[in-house]
Design a protein around this nucleic acid. Structure first.
Lengths: 246, 246
DNA sequence: CGCATGTTTGACGATACTCAATGTGTGTGG
DNA sequence: CCACACACATTGAGTATCGTCAAACATGCG
């Protein structure tokens, strides 16, 4: 008796509506299934690919969380993103046939490996697959541009607020609580990603907590005042009593 | 007698080897030409598209320079890139069928407009076109990730050095001098792009000049010591008579 | 030629970094 | 199961880099 394959198929994957197969018909999905390789789970700290490795596949996260980094000539390292289930890894690799960054599992992670040559061929036949692939690349471009704004223009407090809100939205999209979740990454990772020293991350989280906007207990975060996080307290006066102008 | 069309065709465009038609055969290029719309030149300050506009086309820069920006909910604006001839604009627009940013001509600019629906259809037929489009998107992702590192991890001096070096490489690729060129954008734009105040841009350029690494005269820049710009003076010893305490 | 816009320079101050020490959690091995 | 060690996280003190405010200076367009 074979082990059930259901989990391996896009058709039975709960993430298909936010992943590559979006908008594919059932037979099309079967074709896509045909080229996807099951990959053994990665453990915390293991790398899925490394900067400079030959580019062969992109990966869809099925479970767990992944971080990606780039390193410059001086060895400085920057975390460029945290990837949730349904999101694609390795899209920066195809322009020079070499991965432009490293992907590392933040916890036990399960992935779908999609050989790019086959995906490219299939995308010629399936317009919706092609468009979805491009949409996801486009999405990544747009996301990173927004991140550039955050890095260049905002204070430590705004950076953390923005970070927590984006995490919240992604947890929500996956069906988890939008207001209470666990930070998979360390404070060091958060600081690296946001361009802050670890100490500043700690202090800022404490400050947000004291103001009653969030509650932090180790890696466990509760968002108490979503508007306070995003609204960026233009009114430094008082946290409660919200004034609506007009 | 018709006006010569040569300039309008990819086959006769000097940029084809670094633009979309890269690796296309002559007949394929003709097909691509068939969907490209000539666009009237844009003047300094004019927008090619605006954040929120319906996404219809991507644009290849043929002449002149373009900047792109994103604005967040609070009205903060971030320049996300400067685009040279041969580079593509609007790639961030297709994931939500709306441009995720604004593109503005920094000088008189001439563009090739490429309706995306047609490009998408054609990309199903021409594998090299499809791959080149994806490569350019991938390139943009990788570039922006490197920019995130610059924004998050480096000092004002390093930011300017990195900025000038990247400009230099792109001028070189276009056949211009790599060591002497004109900054098309204002100091305000440079500061915005790099996450620095205008005053810091000014001061840092002056400092780099005093150190003999560059020469600046208004918008005219000469790079005197390329290694000094990138090498990041690990040797802080002394430029002139510097007093070392101890 | 003059006004507007862009650029430079100076003085001052705030935000976030560095260094340092203490506190907390997690995983391993006895 | 507890103790220990190591990594991670928090807090404090002092400081540097860069931003803000302000004014003078240059440039260029009409």
């Amino acid at each position: 008796m074979n082990a059930p394959m259901s989990i391996q198929s896009c058709g039975n994957c709960g993430l298909s509506s936010m992943c590559l197969p979006l908008a594919l018909t059932q037979p099309e999905m079967t074709q896509l299934d045909g080229i996807i390789k099951k990959s053994a789970p990665y453990r915390r700290g293991e790398s899925i690919f490394r900067q400079g490795d030959a580019f062969t596949s992109i990966y869809a996260v099925r479970a767990g969380m992944v971080k990606t980094t780039v390193v410059n000539a001086l060895g400085e390292e920057q975390i460029t993103g945290f990837y949730f289930p349904g999101e694609l890894l390795g899209l920066n690799g195809l322009h020079e046939n070499v991965y432009a960054g490293t992907a590392i599992a933040l916890e036990t992670v399960s992935l779908c490996e999609i050989p790019f040559v086959k995906l490219d061929e299939l995308s010629a036949l399936l317009p919706e697959l092609r468009r979805q692939l491009m949409r996801q690349m486009s999405q990544e471009i747009a996301d990173e541009q927004n991140m550039m704004l955050v890095l260049a223009k905002t204070s430590a407090e705004e950076k953390l607020g923005n970070f927590l809100i984006r995490l919240s939205l992604r947890f929500k999209r996956l069906g988890f609580s939008a207001t209470q979740f666990r930070l998979t990454m360390s404070r060091v990772d958060i600081g690296n990603y946001l361009g802050l020293a670890v100490e500043t991350v700690s202090r800022t989280l404490t400050k947000l907590q004291q103001r009653g906007v969030i509650k932090v207990a180790g890696k466990e975060v509760t968002i108490l005042d979503m508007d306070g996080l995003s609204g960026l307290n233009r009114n430094v006066d008082e946290p409660a009593k919200l004034v609506v102008v007009g």
